[in-house]
């Protein structure tokens, strides 16, 4: 089992001290993501999908519940420990790519390796390899501003994979892409899942995206809508 969330509740506290207001977002969520599967999280806007993923990412802490990732209880990690954990275990794909505008495509991809303190020569090789893999080798020295949305997303996929993480978390990865780019990204995700056994957790409201998932979790008003059926063999990878 890759990710296990049990009894997760989360509420945001908004407003100033005197007029504090508590907004409950997630209610008693139980969730398991198996090793090597693609799990889609779907639901209406505001249903708490991003909040759930942010809890998994360690960007926020659950009000209640326990999170275990790759066999490690991450519920009580400090900020620094979370940072190290993310670097070692997660790749991230964001809806708006989140590339650093001042760095070239290659430098953006290289960033996790730099943070990890990997040797320069090895870094260079790995970066070129990944950019090659996502078909962006020619754009190494381009800045994000000089790339189209689809190209930027490829670079960000390269960055997500450069550390060979066991898990990739993606919040609406196709949200900013046209249908052609969307298709090629989904193909890439399936391929990575199939060939490298990378576990994906993908938030989407797009049925086409949900279609490549082994399982789909539906959220409604911060609760799991109905039990999630396990579809076929997870280890087999692609279900569709």
């Amino acid at each position: 089992m890759m990710i296990q969330m049990s009894g997760i509740s989360h509420q945001f506290t908004i407003g100033k001290r005197a007029k504090e207001k508590v907004v409950p977002v997630l209610k008693n969520i139980h969730l398991q993501v198996e090793k090597g599967e693609i799990m889609a999280i779907v639901g209406r806007s505001g249903s708490g999908k991003s909040t759930l993923l942010n809890l998994m990412s360690g960007y926020i802490r659950p009000t209640e519940g326990r999170i275990v990732v790759a066999g490690q209880d991450v519920t009580g990690l400090t900020e620094g420990q979370w940072a190290d954990f993310r670097l070692a275990n997660y790749g991230f794909i964001f809806q708006s790519f989140q590339l650093i505008p001042g760095l070239t495509a290659a430098e953006n991809v290289e960033l996790p390796l730099v943070l990890k303190g990997v040797d320069k020569a090895l870094r260079k090789r790995r970066t070129e390899e990944l950019l090659e893999q996502v078909g962006m080798a020619e754009y190494m020295t381009h800045y994000p501003g000089e790339l189209s949305g689809g190209q930027q997303q490829r670079v960000s996929v390269a960055r997500a994979l450069v550390m060979e993480p066991p898990i990739v978390l993606a919040d609406e990865p196709t949200g900013s892409l046209d249908s052609e780019n969307e298709k090629s990204l989904l193909t890439m995700i399936r391929q990575l899942n199939h060939e490298l056994g990378i576990t994906f957790v993908i938030i989407t409201h797009d049925e086409q995206v949900a279609a490549i998932a082994n399982r789909t979790l539906r959220l409604r008003d911060g609760a799991v809508q109905h039990p999630v059926p396990v579809s076929g063999s997870v280890q087999g990878g692609v279900g569709i």
């Binding site: 990412s57 900020e79 954990f85 991230f92 943070l115 960055r159």
Partner: peptide, 11 residues
């Protein structure tokens, strides 16, 4: 962005 992908605060 750096923190999101795993930059340690001390760095």
């Amino acid at each position: 962005i750096m923190k999101a992908i795993g930059a340690h605060p001390s760095v």
